[in-house]
Write a protein that binds this DNA or RNA. Structure first.
Lengths: 144, 144
DNA sequence: CTGGATGCAAACTCTTTGCATGCAT
DNA sequence: ATGCATGCAAAGAGTTTGCATCCAG
């Protein structure tokens, strides 16, 4: 497996926290970045297994949690009954189809300052805001 | 059971859609309104059973879905692994503790117009926006 | 009467946990 | 050598579904 700049960055972050750099972690991170869309754990596992067979779902979950803690991945859901992860780190928002669970990105300006202040005022630390728009996607509207 | 204006309103809405007015539906609706906070299905069932014993979880779920369709209740979650329902119908937002799943209301101005337009532009109908702030609540911050 | 709503129970999905082995350090 | 990470399997939580019975209309 070739080492990309992304892998180097992840490896450095892991070392800094005294955690191990394993092939699974590198590949999961890399795969998630390359898919470049919202994926559930099972879908990600499928893509990862094409590169290194024998990876297990628990490892995917624990690695995603790790990557989220490192700020390299964002958790989108739970949306539609499953937790989704997103490799886009910039501020953006999501539309979820209330019928099929499909998720798409939204790029629109949004000032969440007042909401974040209110959350901090209510005693919540490390507050992050995520706008979720729910609606019925075109496919589901057509098919009933 | 005394009939309140709320029950009358619900009964009318049900009749209009050719659906039945059952004691379970009236009590579930009424209990949710009186609790006046975010509840999960199981918690709501507990409160409902104090009024009419023998109500089942599936009935609670199907009634909540029905009430949501009538616009008398709003679905908050899934947040923290469970779906929550809220009897507040006015525009407000939520903070979810990423550690314990606790949910509180936020009252803060938020202009979601651009996001809703973007969602419609992406083909989503009946778009509604909900801001979810995630953070660590005071209790969880203290206890680790 | 008649069909939609209910209650019971079981199934289903996704996620989390426990433990022995293996590998990064 | 050392102990964290992995893989397997099984448990767990919450939600949904199927079907016979019952009751609102």
């Amino acid at each position: 497996m070739a080492i990309s700049p992304d892998e180097t960055k992840l490896a450095a972050a892991l070392h800094e926290r005294g955690q191990r750099v394993t092939p699974q972690r590198l590949v999961i991170h890399r795969t998630l970045r390359e898919l470049n869309r919202h994926v559930g754990a099972e879908e990600l596992l499928g893509a990862v297994e094409e590169r290194i067979p024998g990876v297990s779902l628990p490892t995917v979950y624990s690695t995603l949690e790790l990557l989220e803690g490192l700020g390299l991945v964002r958790r989108v859901g739970p949306a539609g009954g499953r937790v989704l992860y997103d490799s886009r780190l910039d501020d953006h928002h999501h539309v979820v189809c209330s019928h099929c669970g499909r998720v798409e990105d939204i790029d629109a300006p949004l000032d969440t300052g007042a909401a974040l202040d209110a959350a901090r005022g209510a005693g919540f630390a490390d507050a992050r805001a995520g706008l979720v728009v729910t609606g019925v996607c075109r496919d589901c509207a057509i098919r009933g």
